[in-house]
Design a protein around this nucleic acid. Structure first.
Lengths: 344, 344
DNA sequence: TAGGGCCTGGACAACGTTGTCACGGCAGGG
DNA sequence: CCCTGCCGTGACAACGTTGTCCAGGCCCTA
């Protein structure tokens, strides 16, 4: 638990500096800098001598000092919920690729859906002077970032919008996707449809619930309270919710799962159920095709790519007003969403 | 494509520095430093004044400068193959958690299985003076890291051992796992078993192939060349390999898939095959339980955790000799591995 | 041959922070 | 009343790099 920043000195284990290289090569400090950075104005012969000294000493430029001098870190930060979630892996990778194309590295941190941890992480990244910040919000108040943004940290929100501040955001169409998915079930004859989602304080979860209600209302169908789960990704609670909806006097004949975590558990729960139950889930997951699960797919990589591109456009000096970009979703019919209603 | 580090100055958009805070609070520079770092020796009244100035100016300590002075970045680097691969997400997350417990952040980069890119990334991280480096090797020659390690960068390899240098490594028991998996198939009556793996220049892939051959040999079974795929994760080539092994005059009755990527494709290919074919795969994957796929599970999170803990032990000054830690695997029987052989 | 311009190289300050050390004031004891 | 010692505070250098600026040497031309 010891905080690594508070340890006794170790001075990089006495690494050679440009000064050492200069001494060894018998040239001036700045000449070494020129060679290292490929700046013009150095004779081939001098350059050779410097390169040789660099080789021998095993010199590597200290980017910390460089950053201090130049004011740019060539680093961007990504605050997401959980890198282990298969939805965020590809997103992060996409951000990384864009960053790489711009010569930047990526630091990412997981908030574990905890607003305090999100803030702590984001501010730690700012202290390191990342040039830009991409945030998948856990909290719903991002005013703490205002000083940073004013100070020049480009900031883009992904997957969920920022709270209480005006900033770029790149989102999937949660509302539309959920509405389409539920409408799909309705089109296949379902009238009693259950919704199992995540905590409604999460923006996407709330939007998907809204989409569910909209689809039901569009079709003139009532929604019973018992058809909407309290909202949780905990497998036990999801299982309970499924069981109860299916055991009710007027059981649901179809389910809509609000995200990948929930969907996985619902699929498992339904596998144990005697009667076939229709299912549409939000998010595509690996092997869902083999299991025949109909899903509303969103493109995690596209979210990441779009956000990162926007970020770097800003870093390149673009001075547009903050904007909200919404990416569409795709319904992939694979069987589970096309099961007709079964009598109780 | 513009390299972000080569842009005109922007000087952090004129952020306030400790000097500004000091001026505003009417105290000395060092006093501000003391307050910011919670060092003792400051009157409550003085501290209040400083805090107030910090608040008003929106000051945040510049960690780049701090790093330059202190010599520690409180940052570790992780070079992996592909963050979007569901195997590496949890691994990365585990490393992050350990880092967090030690007050450090994590920079990770994907090598895309390209040795050149691995080296480029690792050295870029060293230039940023990460305190430690965790590497999932793409290449097989890591001598380029020797100067860095000598200079004090703690380095641990995960998932695959380092090449041509002596360093810590945390591995899964690829050989033993594959041997157990194939032995499992043999125990269920199979005599002709195909092996479909990744490129054999990848250490784990080679080890798993070795495990396959060992199991066959232990059982006194011959291995035909046609039963071992050339090695690739490309879905098309995997499909072809499966097709050919099943269409041979003496077709295999069971398959062993060498990793998660391959396994997914094999499962898809077998789903289209008329006869049941037994399958055991290396790596657990989500929903494999529902599909009834028998796997040799390795614990990605444990790999990451173990490696990170080792790394921080070294950073804490542990001076043990480099060591190779091998974590065991678990066979999870779910059905596909217990299918008996079918006549051709 | 003198003068001017170009090219190479180096001295120096600055980036924002922290470690060292010294200073002034105050309390307590002789 | 003076000396000692402690405490709060601040001045200053240093971390390793890069931008600015200047010096010296060379070549070319008038």
């Amino acid at each position: 638990m010891a905080d690594i920043a508070r340890r006794p000195e170790h001075r990089y284990g006495n690494r050679p500096t440009m000064k050492d290289v200069a001494a060894r090569a018998g040239v001036g400090l700045k000449t070494v800098s020129r060679v290292v950075n490929g700046e013009p104005g150095v004779t081939p012969e001098t350059e050779r001598r410097v390169q040789e000294a660099i080789e021998i000493l095993g010199f590597r430029r200290n980017d910390s000092a460089r950053v201090l001098r130049k004011g740019r870190t060539a680093t961007v930060g990504l605050v997401l919920e959980d890198l282990a979630d298969p939805f965020y892996g590809p997103l992060s990778r996409a951000v990384e690729e864009v960053a790489r194309a711009h010569g930047a590295l990526l630091i990412n941190g997981s908030s574990a859906e905890d607003p305090g941890r999100e803030q702590e992480l984001a501010l730690a990244l700012c202290a390191r002077r990342v040039d830009g910040l991409i945030v998948i919000p856990a909290g719903d108040d991002h005013r703490y970032l205002e000083p940073e943004i004013r100070a020049g940290v480009a900031t883009v929100f992904v997957d969920r919008p920022a709270g209480l501040i005006d900033a770029d955001a790149v989102l999937s169409d949660s509302f539309g996707g959920a509405r389409d998915g539920v409408a799909h079930l309705i089109a296949h004859g379902h009238r009693r449809i259950g919704f199992i989602g995540d905590r409604p304080r999460i923006h996407t979860a709330a939007e998907r619930l809204r989409g569910y209600r909209a689809a039901m209302e569009d079709a003139g169908l009532p929604v019973q309270d018992a058809w909407v789960s309290p909202g949780s990704t905990d497998p036990e609670r999801v299982r309970t919710a499924v069981r109860e909806m299916l055991a009710a006097p007027e059981p649901v004949t179809a389910l809509f799962a609000g995200n990948n975590r929930v969907m996985v558990t619902v699929v498992r729960a339904l596998a144990e159920h005697p009667r076939p139950v229709a299912l549409v889930g939000f998010d595509d997951i690996e092997l869902a095709d083999l299991l025949g699960v109909t899903v509303i797919a969103q493109d995690a990589a596209a979210l990441g790519r779009t956000a990162a591109e926007r970020l770097f456009r800003r870093l390149d000096g673009a001075d547009e007003a903050p904007e909200r970009v919404v990416l569409g979703t795709t319904l992939l019919a694979r069987g589970s969403g096309e099961i007709p209603p079964t009598a109780a």
